[in-house]
């Protein structure tokens, strides 16, 4: 064997062989269903195609031009951001307070914990249907409750002015337990010595919570914000089941708009354009938020 060739030790060769062998299944699956699919989504966005015909006319940037002037899409994007902001503003503080309650009361509050956790176990579809009937103006739960307070029949989902907020409330109902358990884990991971020291120094439970525990859970909070944001941007199931984006587009989200274009009206090309735009928007937003949060974290 010529000595000039850089020799790879047999040991290293066996490492590379094993690595390749063990990584092939994972990257095969990711390659087909993720990398290729994303590429194909962008690719299809340049065609005007219904998904059935053999003829697939190339239209260049036409779909993208249509998208940039599509008021319905921008409405959907705006709605997505409303969901993002309201989810963070409502879910995180309530989740935090509930976690504080459970942390303070301890094991005795197990009934609370169990009931509060239930929504997280149901599928979004089931929750969507359940609340469709809870919100039903005639046979639901909202109208009778409104009647006790002297109100009439309330049609939350049929009114474009409030439908989005009604749906966001359901989303909060679904995910508050998640943040509750998340913050509860955070609270109980804080060292007990910190609590003891603060009590010895005369802090009350409330002061401990607001002045000591909350600042210490900063990173947990940042993670929760990012989780909530990414989740809200791709939200789909529940809204599709409850309103299909209606009435008159008031609850339309990017994902429901994409879905309806692609699978209800069979505009696969334009659907792919919306999907690709969605991908770009989510990636960009996540990157920017991550960067901002990191910088804020370094300063703080």
């Amino acid at each position: 064997m010529p000595t000039s060739v850089k020799r790879i030790s047999p040991r290293q060769r066996s490492v590379i062989g094993t690595a390749a062998l063990f990584l092939v299944p994972a990257f095969l699956v990711l390659g087909i269903f993720m990398f290729y699919s994303i590429y194909e989504s962008f690719h299809l966005s340049f065609y005007d195609w219904n998904g059935v015909t053999i003829d697939k006319p190339f239209v260049g940037f036409d779909n993208w031009k249509t998208l940039s002037g599509d008021a319905r899409f921008w409405q959907a994007l705006l709605n997505n951001f409303k969901v993002v902001i309201l989810s963070i503003v409502i879910q995180l503080p309530i989740g935090m307070l509930l976690a504080f309650f459970l942390d303070t009361v301890g094991k005795k509050a197990n009934v609370f914990k169990v009931v509060w956790f239930l929504p997280l176990l149901m599928s979004s579809v089931a929750i969507g249907f359940l609340f469709k009937y809870v919100f039903d103006p005639v046979f639901g739960l909202v109208s009778p409750i409104a009647a006790w307070f002297g109100g009439g029949n309330v049609d939350l989902l049929g009114n474009p002015q409030v439908a989005l907020f009604a749906v966001i409330m359901v989303i909060c109902w679904q995910f508050i337990p998640f943040y509750m358990v998340y913050f509860l884990a955070g609270l109980s991971s804080l060292p007990i010595e910190v609590y003891e020291a603060s009590i010895i120094d005369g802090a009350t439970r409330a002061r401990y919570f607001f002045a000591i525990a909350l600042p210490m859970l900063r990173n947990t909070g940042i993670n929760a914000v990012i989780l909530s944001m990414v989740g809200s941007l791709k939200y789909f199931d529940l809204i599709y089941v409850m309103t299909e984006g209606g009435p008159s587009g008031s609850t339309e989200l990017m994902a429901t708009y994409m879905f309806k274009n692609a699978f209800n009206t069979m505009k696969m090309g334009y659907g792919s354009t919306i999907a690709s735009a969605m991908f770009l928007i989510i990636t960009l937003t996540s990157l920017i938020t991550l960067k901002m949060m990191r910088q804020g974290g370094e300063r703080g």
Binding site: L30, M34, K234, M254, A255, M258, S272, M278
Partner: peptide, 28 residues
């Protein structure tokens, strides 16, 4: 081995991919 970290980063980045981007191609 050499490409371990880049490959791992790719896997981690995949966690953020929304399923709706892949819905049409996977359907096809």
């Amino acid at each position: 081995f050499r490409f371990r970290n880049p490959l791992y980063s790719i896997v981690v980045a995949c966690m953020a991919i929304p399923i709706h981007v892949t819905l049409i191609p996977i359907y096809m």
